[in-house]
Design a protein around this nucleic acid. Structure first.
Lengths: 356, 356
DNA sequence: TGTATTTGTGGAAACGCTTACTCGCCTCTG
DNA sequence: CAGAGGCGAGTAAGCGTTTCCACAAATACA
C-alpha cells in the first residue's frame, strides 16, 4: 500500500498524489478530488519514514524530562503532546533520572531519530552533552537558562512573583521563622527558587537565617529527611516553604507521622501546584507554575525556529494558591483558629458526630 | 554526514560499513576496526529513517495509556521505556483520556510512524479502532482480555489473589460491612476487580450487599464523590475498598475533610500501590500490581512476536501491602487501638510534646 | 492564425540505507 | 598443478517519498 497504488487508482502520477497530499495549490481541484477519494478508499497513510528521508524533516519533537514519576512532569508531557500533535508533530520522550549517563542516551536517541527540535525540561543544564545537539543545529528550548546561541530559546519562569506572594502570605499571617527546603543544588530552577525566597524574605523585612535553609532533592523521601532535620532544631520554624510539592508532601507526611499538626503548629507551602497537592490532608497551599503554559511555550519556541520566526524568550508566570496547609503561627490567635477549624468541618456538610 | 563519508574515511565500500554496523560476521576484523574508528572520528549516527525505510522495521514500539496524569502510568511508562531502549527500540506514547476520538488519533499516529508493535494499556478495549492495527498485522499486547488472533498477546493480571488478601485482611480484623468503590464500568480491569471483590467476600462468608458497591471512575474526584455517597448511607461501612489508589486518595481526602478518622472509624484499601500511596496520611494499605512486571511483560510480548517466538499469555501477580489505613472496626478493641497509635508515635522518634 | 506565455501534469533523480548478487582471490583437493 | 569451492568485499537495486525539470495543453497576445 504505497503512493503508487493511490496513483494507479486515481489514474494520475505519483507526483500528483504527493502534491495533493501536501496541498500544493497547483493541483486541479478535479484531480485532487479523485486522489482524495482513492486515498480514502485504499485507507492509505503516507510512509513517514520515506517522507522524512527525502524532506530532511522528521516532524518529531523531543522532550527530555528529569523524572517522569514526579507528577509535575506527566502533566507537562500531556500538554506537550497535545500541542505537538495539534501541529502535526510526533513526540519522543526521554527521562534522565538526573543520571548523566541516561541523559547521554536520551540525546543520542533524539539525534538518531532526527528530532526536529528538543525541549529540555530537566531544569538544569548538562552543557557538554547538549552541545552535541546544538552542533547539529537542532533547535533547543530550555527552562530558565540557556547558552546564547542561534536556535536556542528559553522559557523564563518568574519564580519571584509566586514565591513573593507565598512569603507575603506567611508574613501577613504573622510568621517570622520560615524555613526553606531546597531542591538539588545543581538544578538551576531550584537555585532560582531559593534566591527568590531569600529575596522575598528581605522584602518583608525578615532576616534570612541560613540554619533554616535545608537541602532537599525534590522527592518525597527528601522531604521526609528534611522534616527530620527541621525537627532536630532547638527552635522549630513556624512555617516551611518547599522548593516543590513532592518535598512538601514528604514534609507533611513526616510531620503527621510524628504528631505535628499542620497548619496548627507548622504551616507548609509547596511549589508547582501539582494536582495531588489539593488532595493532601490538609490540602496544600502551593505556588502554581502552569504546565500548560510551559508546554505550549516549548512547542511554540521550537516551531518558531523551524518555521523561521525564532524568538529568544518566553515568559512563564507563577502564582500562589492558598489552601489549608497555611495558618496563623502557633501560640497566636488560638481562638481564631478554633473558629476556622469549626467552619472547615461545617463545610464538610456532615457533623463529625454523625459518623460515629 | 552519511555512510559514504564513513566509507571514504575507512577506505571501504558503503556495504562494508553497513555490514560492520550491523555486526554481520563476514567482515574481516581488520576492516571492522578501521570502520569503527572512522565512525567514532566522524561522530557518525546511522539515519534511522533510511534504515527503517529499507528494512521495513522502524524499531518503534507504541504505548497507549489511558491517562498519563494518573501516577500509575508514569511508573509504567518508565519501565516500558527502560525495557524498550534496552532492546534498541524507541517508544511512542499516546494517551487517550478515555476519549474514543483521542484513541483514534493515537492509533493513527502509531500506524503513520509504522510502530513495530503496540502495547495497549488502557485496561479496556476499543475493539473496532484497534482492528485497524490488527489488520495491518501490527503485533499487539493487551491487559486482561484480547481478541483471539495471531499477533496478539495478553497480560493476564491475577486481580483475585491481591484482592482476596485484602478482603481477608479486613475480615481478620473483624470487618463485616465492607464497601467497594468501582472503576468506570466499561473498563474491563475495573470489572475484574469488582468481581474479585465479590468473590473474595463470599470466600470469607460475608454476604455481598449491592448497596455497598459504589460506582467510581478511577479519579480522586470520583473518590470524593463516592465518599459523599457513602456518608449519606444510614449505616456506614467499617471499611472501604477502592478499585484504584486515586479513588482511595479521594475517599481519604473527603473523609478527613468531614472529620471521619481513618483507620479509627473507617479502614481503607486502595489498588495499584502507586508510590504516592505510602505518603498519604495515614499511609495507604494497597494492593500492589507491579508496573515493572507489566512493562517488561509488554515489551517481551511484543518482542516475542517480532522475533518469531510468540507467546499468547503472560501472568502478572498482585499482592497486598499493609500500611496504616486499615485497622480494627470502630467500637471494637479500643484499648488495642490506643496502644497501636502510641507505638506509631514512638516510631516517629520524637515525642509529640517536644514540638509544641 | 502563429508565436509567446502560463498552467497543470508526469518522468525521474535523490534522500541514506540494506542486501542480493557478482566477482576476484585464496585455499584445498584430486 | 589445475580446477573447484569458499570467502570477503564491492556494485547496484530498491525502499516510498518529495521535488526539480521537462513537456504538453491551454490561454494570451500580436
Amino acid at each position: 500500500m504505497d503512493i503508487h497504488a493511490v496513483a494507479r487508482r486515481a489514474h494520475v502520477s505519483i507526483a500528483t498524489v504527493s502534491r495533493t497530499i501536501n496541498h500544493v495549490p497547483t493541483v486541479s481541484p478535479q484531480l485532487a478530488t479523485r486522489v482524495w477519494e482513492a486515498i480514502r478508499e485504499l485507507n492509505y497513510l503516507p510512509n513517514t519514514q520515506a517522507r522524512a528521508l527525502v524532506s530532511g524533516r522528521s516532524r518529531i519533537l523531543g522532550l527530555i524530562v528529569s523524572e517522569i514519576t514526579n507528577p509535575f512532569f506527566p502533566e507537562l508531557i500531556q500538554g506537550f503532546e497535545d500541542c505537538a500533535v495539534e501541529n502535526g508533530y510526533e513526540i519522543l520522550i526521554g527521562s534522565t533520572n538526573y543520571e548523566p549517563e541516561r541523559m547521554q542516551r536520551c540525546i543520542r536517541r533524539m539525534m538518531e531519530r532526527k528530532a526536529d527540535g528538543v525541549a529540555v525540561m530537566t531544569f538544569g543544564i548538562e552543557q557538554p552533552l547538549l552541545d552535541q545537539l546544538a552542533d547539529r543545529n537542532v533547535p533547543l528550548v530550555f527552562v530558565d537558562v540557556a547558552p546564547e546561541r542561534p536556535g536556542i530559546s528559553i522559557l523564563k519562569v518568574d519564580y519571584h512573583r509566586g514565591i513573593r506572594q507565598g512569603v507575603q502570605h506567611l508574613a501577613a499571617l504573622g510568621h517570622r521563622r520560615i524555613a526553606f527546603v531546597t531542591g538539588p543544588p545543581r538544578l538551576h530552577s531550584a537555585q532560582s527558587r531559593l534566591a527568590a525566597f531569600r529575596n522575598s524574605l528581605g522584602e518583608c523585612g525578615i532576616r534570612v537565617e541560613d540554619k533554616l535553609i535545608i537541602e532537599g532533592d525534590h522527592t518525597m523521601e527528601g522531604g521526609m529527611a528534611a522534616a527530620e532535620k527541621i525537627k532536630a532544631r532547638e527552635i522549630l520554624p513556624t512555617a516551611i516553604m518547599c522548593s516543590n510539592d513532592m518535598l512538601a508532601i514528604g514534609v507533611l507526611h513526616e510531620l503527621a507521622h510524628s504528631g505535628v499538626r499542620v497548619p496548627d503548629e507548622v504551616s507548609i507551602i509547596g511549589f508547582d501546584d501539582i494536582h495531588m497537592a489539593s488532595m493532601m490532608i490538609p490540602p496544600l497551599t502551593s505556588i502554581q507554575m502552569s504546565r500548560a503554559a510551559l508546554a505550549s511555550g516549548a512547542v511554540s519556541a521550537l516551531r518558531g525556529h523551524l518555521e523561521g520566526a525564532p524568538k529568544r524568550e518566553y515568559r512563564i508566570d507563577t502564582q500562589l494558591v492558598v489552601r489549608e496547609s497555611t495558618g496563623f503561627p502557633r501560640g497566636t490567635m488560638a481562638h481564631f483558629r478554633r473558629e476556622e477549624r469549626k467552619a472547615r468541618l461545617l463545610r464538610g456538610k456532615v457533623e463529625p458526630d454523625s459518623v460515629k
